[in-house]
């Protein structure tokens, strides 16, 4: 099975910087792999173990510094890595991002069977990029995936969280899945994995490489744009009491009774 794994680097800081265009400044900010993409990676590796002859190609869209994250994921047992990177991609919303990543997958891995994404990224928290990629490739999607039940050449059986319970679904490949589970133990990279990952070539895809025009990329290719950004202010009045246990109990009781 040919698996495309899509991951994202997210800022690991509370110090968020914005550009003049009110988009997020990514250069110079320390970054980590999006936590949900770790679960996606674990699930992709699990499928690779179950279906012999499988390979995983990791895709990420971002600046050159995302290469370090790709090397870490290669060390876990992924086979190839693609960095989709071009200044023209800056400011892309989920529509433009879906268009760009789907093009890159089409270009590099046209005969893919499965695309694995995290359910959402903790920075934007939209949960839209996965379905957006699936839309551009006209393939079915399964979101909120908990676990894999069975993997075969042409179908996958998965459990997923619906609003009212847990569904077991069978999807015909090629398909895209978004992984929600929080239950996998993240794998530690093997020493020889780290060594071989450091030697692997990371393929870089620019706008020209994937055959997209500038009008379809980045801010230009995005139907939405940030008109203003502002700090979130709390409207609670932050009274703090440091008292003995009995007084604390009395205060708690008084507040609960008074507000009930």
């Amino acid at each position: 099975m040919k698996i495309a794994l899509c991951i994202k680097q997210v800022p690991d800081t509370t110090d968020i910087k914005w550009t003049e265009n009110n988009t997020i400044q990514r250069e110079g900010v320390e970054s980590v792999i999006n936590p949900y993409d770790i679960y996606a990676t674990e699930l992709a590796l699990k499928i690779k173990e179950q279906v012999s002859g499988s390979s995983i190609t990791v895709f990420t869209m971002g600046p050159a510094q995302a290469e370090s994250m790709l090397r870490k994921v290669l060390a876990l047992g992924c086979d190839n890595a693609v960095l989709i990177s071009d200044r023209k991609f800056a400011g892309a919303d989920t529509f433009a991002t879906g268009q760009t990543i789907s093009r890159a997958i089409r270009t590099v891995l046209p005969d893919f069977d499965l695309i694995v994404c995290g359910q959402f990224a903790v920075d934007g928290d939209t949960a839209q990029t996965g379905p957006s990629i699936a839309n551009f490739l006209d393939i079915p999607q399964v979101t909120y995936v908990q676990d894999i039940v069975n993997a075969e050449e042409k179908t996958l059986t998965l459990t997923k969280t619906a609003d009212d319970g847990i569904e077991t679904v069978r999807v015909t490949l090629p398909a895209l899945i978004c992984v929600m589970t929080q239950q996998f133990e993240p794998k530690r990279p093997l020493i020889n994995g780290i060594i071989s990952a450091s030697k692997k070539e990371i393929k870089v895809c620019t706008m020209e490489d994937i055959g997209l025009s500038a009008e379809k990329c980045g801010l230009k290719g995005s139907p939405t744009y940030v008109s203003k950004a502002f700090r979130n202010q709390s409207n609670h009045n932050a009274q703090k009491f440091k008292m003995n246990v009995q007084d604390s109990v009395n205060l708690l009781k008084e507040k609960i009774e008074g507000l009930k």
Binding site: T14, N22, I24, V122, V226, K228, A229, F230, R231, N232
Partner: peptide, 9 residues
């Protein structure tokens, strides 16, 4: 956005 630190319109 960004875990609630910023609001974006």
């Amino acid at each position: 956005t960004f875990g609630g630190q910023l609001m974006a319109t």
